[in-house]
């Protein structure tokens, strides 16, 4: 089947011949490898994308179900240069191996769009579905606390 949807603001078409996740279609067919496959169970958040305004794990979404939807991946966050969320992470040591980073960028961008001044607990709750194995989360929390202070 052919699935047409809006991907990072542009019309996209996926040809689906077997049951396949949105994550696989993004990575293998639409050449957007930024969304990462780390667990394929919706546990780690590395494949987080925005689907019709909601954060989802793209590994848990059937590609066949996104017809006429709007999908935003890490590649669709920002335009020229880093967004405030990305810049905050870059300048606070919040990136190590980087495998969780795209998912965190997507979720944090969504958080700050809804709530430019989140508390520490709100930051943690927003990111509770994103596992990072490298940083111990300290630098991630600090980067967004700093951004929240700057935007308040």
């Amino acid at each position: 089947m052919i699935v047409e949807f809006l991907l990072n603001g542009e019309p996209a078409t996926a040809r689906i011949v077997s049951p396949v996740s949105l994550l696989d279609v993004l990575r293998d067919q639409l050449e957007l490898p930024g969304s990462k496959n780390a667990c394929e169970q919706g546990e780690c958040g590395s494949c987080s994308v925005v689907l019709d305004g909601e954060i989802v794990c793209s590994c848990l979404v059937m590609a066949a179900d996104v017809g006429d939807s709007e999908v935003v991946t890490v590649e669709g966050i920002g335009g020229d240069g880093l967004t405030p969320v990305q810049r905050a992470m870059h300048h606070s040591g919040a990136v190590q191996c980087g495998f969780c980073t795209p998912g965190i960028v997507v979720v944090a961008a969504d958080l700050f769009a809804r709530n430019p001044n989140p508390t520490t607990l709100e930051i943690k709750e927003a990111l509770a579905g994103n596992i990072c194995r490298c940083t111990g989360y300290g630098a991630i929390i600090r980067s967004f606390e700093k951004l929240a202070r700057e935007t308040s």
């Binding site: 990575r27 957007l32 490898p33 930024g34 969304s35 990462k36 496959n37 991946t73 890490v74 590649e75 920002g78 880093l82 990305q86 992470m89 870059h90 300048h91 040591g93 990136v95 980087g98 495998f99 980073t101 795209p102 960028v105």
Partner: peptide
Amino acid sequence: DSTLRPDGIPKLEGSFEYAQD
């Protein structure tokens, strides 16, 4: 110095190439 990572920006933009990619 707490120099910034040279691979930080591509990792944040999703363009850093991992073995998986």
